[in-house]
């Protein structure tokens, strides 16, 4: 029997010396190629769950397994984030001093790729996302939608297997939200990537074949589309 791509076992996460419980025993399993939406009200623990699945933080109890190996012990978290995971954040988190094409190369600097390869790959990704005319623009010179597309290109830079998006449309208007979701779904399908999106928007959650609802740090429901 093969291991799932990603598996969480009884994850608990507390803050403020355990006085605040963000997660209260979450277990789930995600297969390669899955597109999963996680939704829930504010403070339900959905972003915390995504951070633990992406190796940005470590659980207070429980463990996350990637291809059957425990994150943080068998797999180094820095290596995991740089090679296996692409992150997309609500606030884009682009580096303000770097141009679009330079921002996309930042994750590649962690892997010591050759400079010409880095630049070429960044250009290809930005062109693919319709930003050919914006390669040398700084983040403050781009619209919100364009910034998120640069962030998507950056997430794809190291060809990860897992794309994790935390409210990727949270700072966008409806037109740009639709465009970004169209891009993300297109990427997931064309590349066969595993994608987990955290959202509080029902229509976005509904677009995912699998939808997990979280409330008060526990999984309330999880369904698979037929």
């Amino acid at each position: 029997m093969t291991s799932p791509l990603l598996e969480a076992r009884e994850l608990r996460k507390g803050y403020d010396d355990g006085r605040i419980a963000a997660l209260r025993g979450v277990s789930l399993s995600i297969e390669a190629g899955d597109f999963v939406a996680i939704s829930g009200p504010s403070g339900s623990g959905k972003s915390t769950l995504l951070q633990l699945l992406g190796g940005l933080d470590t659980p207070s109890e429980g463990q996350v397994f990637y291809r059957g190996q425990a994150l943080g012990s068998a797999i180094d978290l820095d290596d995991y984030r740089s090679t296996e995971v692409g992150f997309i954040f609500q606030a884009f988190y682009l580096l303000p001093t770097l141009r679009a094409i330079e921002n996309v190369q930042v994750p590649m600097l962690a892997l010591r790729r050759e400079s010409s390869t880095r630049a070429q790959r960044a250009e290809e990704l930005l062109c693919e996302l319709g930003l050919k005319e914006r390669l040398n623009h700084y983040p403050h010179e781009l619209s919100a939608g364009e910034r998120q597309r640069v962030a998507i290109a950056r997430a794809l830079a190291n060809q990860p297997t897992l794309l994790l998006a935390d409210e990727p449309t949270g700072n966008l208007d409806s037109e740009n939200s639709a465009r970004i979701m169209e891009i993300l779904i297109g990427i997931q399908r064309s590349r066969g990537m595993t994608m987990i999106i955290v959202t509080h928007e029902n229509d976005i959650a509904a677009s995912a074949p699998r939808h997990i609802r979280i409330r008060d740090g526990r999984i309330e429901s999880g369904r698979c589309a037929s």
């Binding site: 001093t97 094409i101 330079e102 630049a119 390669l135």
Partner: peptide, 18 residues
């Protein structure tokens, strides 16, 4: 021509922002 980001250039940009 694609602009390549080197470690040294990144470092310099951080200094030059202020």
């Amino acid at each position: 021509m694609a602009r390549s980001l080197s470690f040294a250039w990144f470092s310099w940009k951080n200094l030059w922002r202020r």
